[in-house]
């Protein structure tokens, strides 16, 4: 049990576990699942915003959106690479995603109905993602932590471009302001759900905290996000769609209303507005790209033979 003691010593000392170190099987499995789901979320997350690249209202917005969607692809690849250091196989991970056997963040199962959604995704969805991800820069598994550091650096542009887009629309016409408000109304609650089920129902939280994979509970991070978002909403001039949202001086935090957990579980289990469409689109893109992968592999094999 020397190996296990050494593992626990490294984790307790807040040092990093590296790929070839001994680790408990449960630690490896938990990480593979979490990193894979995180990677899938980045890859599926390209779709809702990708929908607006061809319809962006200006060249400036189009270039920004392209760069952002390209970043999401990059983030997915950093994370797949981190999962592979744990022995996961890339083709297998892709298969799990396109066959619906592995999940991704439910937030991407909601549609982007107007261009204001692009802004709100940057502000609230990427904002919530940053809240989740910043503590992961100190997660106990080295390759995951390093991937998260890269991702967090790049993510801050995502949130700022979203907020700037919304500020621009709020200075525009009445119709544009209404569009922003409508988008905020639709995305606020799903954004709060991004932190996952409440602590008392989160099966894996305790063990993940002990292993220092997670550094904070779902509810702690959700509260942090609410506290950050309220003043941002005020500055923007929008009202968050929660009548119970109020400052609680005693707690030093904002109180907020009850999340519709029935909706959360419905979407997680596959019955959200876009679940089927997102997975089908990913599967189609993967299958349509098969000939490129095969041709490149054949070309490489031919050159290797000739050499």
């Amino acid at each position: 049990m020397d190996l296990e003691r050494e593992f626990e010593r490294v984790v307790a000392a807040d040092h990093r576990i590296e790929p070839r170190d001994w680790m408990p099987e449960g630690y490896r499995k938990t990480l593979v699942r979490q990193i894979a789901q995180h990677a899938h979320s980045e890859i599926i997350g390209m779709q809702p915003e990708g929908d607006w690249i061809s319809r962006a209202p200006s060249l400036r917005r189009k270039a920004i959106l392209l760069a952002k969607v390209q970043d999401e692809a990059g983030h997915g690849l950093y994370l797949y690479a981190a999962a592979e250091t744990l022995g996961a196989d890339r083709d297998d991970l892709t298969a799990r995603l396109v066959e619906g056997r592995q999940k991704y963040s439910s937030i991407f199962n909601y549609p982007t109905l107007t261009f204001a959604d692009v802004g709100v995704i940057g502000w609230l969805v990427d904002g919530a993602a940053i809240c989740n991800q910043v503590p992961l820069c100190r997660t106990s598994y080295g390759p995951y932590a390093r991937a998260m550091i890269r991702i967090c650096k790049e993510e801050s542009f995502h949130q700022r471009q979203g907020y700037e887009l919304l500020m621009t629309m709020m200075r525009g016409t009445r119709a544009q302001r209404d569009m922003v408000r409508d988008a905020v109304d639709r995305w606020w609650w799903p954004a709060l759900m991004m932190f996952g089920p409440p602590d008392e129902e989160s099966a894996n939280t305790e063990r993940s905290l002990a292993w220092r994979i997670k550094r904070h509970t779902n509810d702690e991070l959700r509260q942090r996000f609410v506290d950050m978002s309220v003043p941002q909403a005020e500055k923007l001039g929008v009202t968050l769609p929660d009548p119970k949202l109020a400052w609680n001086a005693e707690r030093g935090h904002y109180d907020f209303g009850e999340i519709d957990w029935a909706e959360f579980w419905r979407v997680v289990k596959g019955d959200g507005p876009c679940n089927a469409q997102r997975v089908a689109h990913r599967r189609e893109a993967h299958e349509d790209g098969a000939w490129v992968r095969e041709a490149a592999a054949a070309y490489a094999a031919m050159r290797e033979r000739a050499a």
């Binding site: 990059g74 690849l77 950093y78 690479a81 981190a82 390093r146 991937a147 490149a296 070309y299 490489a300």
Partner: peptide
């Protein structure tokens, strides 16, 4: 900085630049 998949050395270099 990390890793990636590529069919050959040259594509690995280009993918690394993009990634």
């Amino acid at each position: 900085v990390g890793s990636l998949h590529a069919p050959d050395d040259e594509m690995a270099l280009r993918n690394a630049r993009d990634l």
